[in-house]
Write a protein that binds this DNA or RNA. Structure first.
Lengths: 249, 249
DNA sequence: TTAATAGTGTCTATCAGACAGTATAGT
DNA sequence: ACTATACTGTCTGATAGACACTATTAA
């Protein structure tokens, strides 16, 4: 606290002190997409290019200010729809970020911003909406979750750290909660579900043990359909019949 | 969304729509205190009495507005110190609450408030500061966490729901993280630690199994001291040597 | 027939819960 | 000696990881 007014930017700090902090909502939207580099699907997320300073031209999480007549979650859904055209079924609050120096480049004064960040999981069908979608599509693009911003001078604001935190939360939650289905379609094979786990956790899983564990979950019901078209024995399709969204955290 | 402007309070809603949402910080402070009703220690928390409308005279979580030059966590610590005199060593963000109708009694218009809520665990020695402490002590009092506000027309705002959510988070986190020590002093017996778990989880635990599990945690080191003064065989005192605060969530 | 994945069975180490049994203090 | 709690040992059922083995399709 005592170092707060020290340093070359003291004038900016005291200037900012006059303004009340403003509130913004951002969202980390995870989708599983096949990656050319790796043979297996990996985690991707849509980012929007900044058209204004600060960080003009750099990539940032979709988001915007909080309107006065909507709840936090409604604001997240609206911003998502407006900026990327997505309407994810799974949406949960991640964290409120309120550090002092996150709204501007170091040394440039601007208003203090507190961001309430949500995270979402979308299916491939939902993710396609983005590709065909909006007019401003050239300013929205998918990036790999683990490397977004790497060779481009980094992401805007503290969004790289926010994504890393969201990745950590996704991994933690996947291990004890039933959320992997939100990456997949209505029906899926156990191998597809295992690919989700492997992509998120970053390590291979034993197919036999994975099958045994998942079969003990009553919410995963086998259908009488099989996935045709593969080169080999067609796998059975399963369906998730549990609640669409689990309780918070 | 379509029902937002319906109903008898539409005028208030549109009035609020002109104002930007304001930001507040509140904190749920848990302490373990012996309870007269039950023989065992139970969870308590300090509440402050509202001196202004809305909810004047009712009990509320300690908190206040966010100053422009402090981080969210600093704001939580400052509000805590000012309202209750407490300086907890364990402090973590709980959730950001931003529903439309949480800042006022139903039917009374007022500005929209978004609250970022922190939760804290304090030791008995820290908790005593409150008793002797501040001048406005008559407006600060300890309440049982599970029943606070029950026979008094309820707590102010949505604070009863916030406390219930914090209780749920505390129970969840206790089961997989090393946080129970923050309720205890520098050294403690395994029976005391077990009492913390039993009070938080609300169920008895087998002393033998609890001992075996805790002994497999290297951060819990036995001292060569024993707790004298009991009526029976003196138990060994242990010390927690891990990091003071674990990573977020 | 072969390749490749789907799916089953089984062995083992680990661990949580239950609980019997021993140790040691105050009274 | 008695009692209450501290502390240890052991049995059992459940489960995760490793991995051998069988089944079924397309080419």
């Amino acid at each position: 606290m005592s170092t707060l007014f020290a340093g070359p930017f003291g004038a900016n700090v005291s200037e900012r002190a006059q303004l009340p902090p403003s509130l913004a909502i951002s969202t980390v939207i995870f989708a599983l997409k096949p990656s050319r580099d790796v043979g297996k699907p990996t985690l991707w997320l849509p980012l929007v290019r900044r058209v204004k300073e600060p960080f003009k031209g750099q990539w940032a999480l979709p988001g915007g200010p909080l309107a006065a007549t909507e709840s936090l979650e409604d604001a997240a859904r609206r911003n998502l729809r407006e900026t990327t055209g997505l309407a994810p079924e799974y949406l949960e609050q991640l964290y409120a970020f309120g550090g002092l120096n996150r709204a501007h480049r170091p040394g440039q004064g601007s208003q203090r911003v507190v961001s309430i960040v949500y995270w979402a999981l979308v299916r491939p069908t939902e993710a396609e909406l983005l590709v065909e979608g909006e007019a401003e599509a050239e300013n929205v693009a998918w990036h790999r979750a683990d490397t977004a911003g790497d060779g481009e001078g980094g992401l805007a604001f503290d969004h790289r750290e926010i994504i890393d935190y969201a990745l950590w939360r996704l991994r933690s939650k996947l291990e004890y909660a039933q959320i992997a289905y939100h990456f997949l379609g209505e029906t899926f094979t156990l191998a597809q579900l295992r690919e989700v786990y492997e992509a998120v956790l970053g390590r291979p899983l034993d197919p036999a043990n994975f099958r045994r564990q998942l079969k003990s979950v009553p919410q995963i019901e086998p259908t009488d359909q099989f996935l045709e078209g593969g080169k080999h024995r067609p796998p059975r399709l399963y369906r998730y019949t549990g609640p669409a969204q689990r309780s918070t955290t």
